[in-house]
């Protein structure tokens, strides 16, 4: 009984206002890549989904957005939670997913397998939400591009192994390509497809 309930509880206490707040936070993060966003509403997504990732799921996913979950998330209560609170269909086909969620430490599939949008509709691509270990303590990276005056340094810890390499490929597809949100606990930073990431030597 307890397990079954996990899919039903832990949603936004106030679905309308909370999702608007989180949407605003994400919008600001997307507009200023690398800036830190904080999720304030009280919610309790089933583990191993983080709070910020769960908040994004409740805010962005609905009946019209097929969602891809990493193998570990797909086997957890997250699938039931997603179905109950968002009504979003799960898909095994990465290329059909409008959103994809990965827990911390999950293997990042080749980004080219996700929906990359078309020249006519570049918005029809997957947004990846990747949980990492922490926003600090990782390899220093510099972000440049639209929404960044000069340069924004970030130091995310626990990025998927070949993330930087894949990001370079993703950038080459512009205007097509993926957008990424990195989450850890209540925090998030956004990496829209326009963002250039330069690794600094340590």
């Amino acid at each position: 009984m307890e397990n079954r309930n996990e899919g039903f509880t832990g949603g936004f206490p106030d679905a309308v206002y909370n999702s608007q707040t989180v949407f605003r936070t994400l919008m600001d993060c997307m507009a200023r890549p690398g800036s830190l966003g904080l999720v304030t509403p009280e919610l309790m997504p089933p583990s191993p989904l983080g709070i910020a990732a769960g908040a994004l799921m409740l805010t962005l996913c609905d009946h019209d957005t097929p969602v891809w979950l990493s193998p570990k998330l797909a086997q957890s209560n997250v699938a039931a939670w997603l179905a109950f609170h968002c009504g979003a269909p799960l898909t095994r086909e990465k290329s059909e997913a409008r959103f994809a969620f990965l827990e911390a430490g999950a293997h990042l599939p080749a980004t080219g397998l996700f929906a990359l949008g078309t020249q006519e509709y570049p918005d029809r691509s997957t947004t990846l939400v990747i949980e990492i270990e922490a926003m600090e303590g990782g390899r220093p990276l510099n972000l440049t591009g639209p929404g960044i005056r000069d340069v924004t340094p970030i130091t995310p810890r626990g990025l998927p192994a070949d993330f930087l390499h894949q990001w370079t490929d993703n950038r080459a597809l512009f205007p097509r390509g993926l957008d990424v949100v990195l989450t850890t606990g209540r925090q998030m930073i956004a990496l829209p497809r326009t963002c250039k990431i330069t690794a600094l030597e340590v």
């Binding site: 009984m1 079954r4 309930n5 039903f8 509880t9 109950f84």
Partner: peptide, 10 residues
């Protein structure tokens, strides 16, 4: 609507 009553039933 979805409710949970005291005995836990949904």
């Amino acid at each position: 609507a979805t409710v949970r009553v005291a005995d836990g039933a949904i």
